[in-house]
């Protein structure tokens, strides 16, 4: 067992699957010889050859479209979209094709593809390198949307995604590629080394889809979150001293509702945290689900802490990012309600 960054863990998952299954192929912009702009596929082309790991033209719709065709042939393609902000040209192929071909053909054709996309901000990427478009994906029936928060889960979830017979969108929060960022951007960068979740086995293992993790057990309230914001929520809990239970959803949709309902039923209070814009964001769905399933156990209104409903700004990044202060303030407000 070695300590790995998210990048190393993702690369290890891809390596394991290329080794185990001849039908796994990896492609995307710059993923071949160069190994990806974030280095997630570094060395894989050299190890497995150009017909298993290769560069593509800059055409996201084409990348996902050929993945659907390869899946119809019988392959298990793993496509990389260089930034989630660039996936929109592929939306038709994801929504109308990958997500629906099993349904519309009554199982005659399927699309077991995995589409990896780095997402989220915190890197001064401005409005074209910072978005968290998960709600545009969780809204689509037939897709699975996954977002890990640490190296161990990243590898296990990515292997589970590649092995899954449904199309999976695998969102990688780029700010935590190299360390567990807690939102304190003015403090020194923390590496993954020494963080328990960075201990990653070399070989094959999975973290099951549709299973949430209780990241931090607690009794006072429930925080529902995922990705980078798991670490931000933990910082807010630490700084406020509120004994919150933090649930890392991991699989956004379909999701592990039981773990959520059990927790909110126990605590009676719920704060939902995500980096994406607020209106019609995934937090709205979580709010509705908690209201539908836990209403009579709630002792306070559900709060959402999210990015503002603006494009992700460049120079005002930290005013936009829902950091530990904003999360902490929400935790206090929810606790102050009688």
């Amino acid at each position: 067992m070695a300590s790995m960054t998210m990048i190393q863990a993702i690369r290890s998952a891809l390596d394991v699957m290329l080794e185990r299954d001849d039908n796994v192929v990896i492609f995307g912009q710059d993923v071949g010889f160069f190994g990806g702009v974030f280095r997630c596929t570094d060395g894989l082309q050299k190890k497995y050859g150009t017909s298993r790991v290769f560069d593509t033209p800059i055409a996201e719709g084409g990348i996902v479209g050929v993945a659907v065709g390869m899946a119809a042939y019988g392959l298990r393609p793993v496509a990389e979209i260089q930034f989630a902000d660039y996936f929109y040209p592929a939306y038709d192929q994801l929504v109308s094709e990958a997500a629906r071909v099993r349904y519309r053909s009554a199982g005659d054709f399927t699309a077991p593809i995995t589409v990896r996309m780095p997402c989220g901000g915190g890197i001064y990427g401005g409005q074209t390198h910072s978005q968290s478009p998960e709600a545009l994906l969780t809204h689509v029936c037939g897709l699975r949307t996954v977002m890990p928060s640490n190296p161990y889960d990243a590898k296990g979830l990515l292997i589970a995604s590649i092995e899954c017979d449904d199309p999976v969108i695998f969102l990688e929060p780029k700010r935590i590629y190299n360390g567990p960022f807690d939102g304190h951007h003015d403090k020194p960068v923390v590496p993954w080394t020494g963080v328990p979740q960075s201990e990653v086995p070399d070989g094959h293992y999975t973290v099951p889809l549709e299973s949430a993790a209780i990241f931090r057990p607690g009794t006072a309230l429930t925080v529902l979150t995922y990705g980078t914001m798991v670490w931000v929520a933990e910082a807010a809990v630490r700084e406020t001293g509120i004994d919150a239970e933090i649930i890392d959803l991991r699989s956004l949709w379909p999701m592990d509702l039981d773990t959520v309902v059990d927790s909110v039923t126990k605590t009676g209070r719920c704060v939902i945290v995500h980096e994406a814009t607020r209106t019609s964001g995934f937090g709205a769905e979580l709010t509705a689900l908690v209201q539908e399933h836990c209403f009579f156990h709630l002792e306070a209104p559900i709060e959402r802490v999210t990015g503002w409903d603006t494009p992700y700004p460049h120079a005002q990044e930290w005013a936009y990012f829902p950091g530990p202060e904003r999360v902490g303030a929400a935790l206090r407000r929810v606790m102050e309600t009688a």
Partner: peptide, 19 residues
Amino acid sequence: NLGTQYVQAVGWAMASAIK
């Protein structure tokens, strides 16, 4: 949805060559 199958066909053909 018009045209979606065109690029999928290319992907299928690429898969045939890969294999």
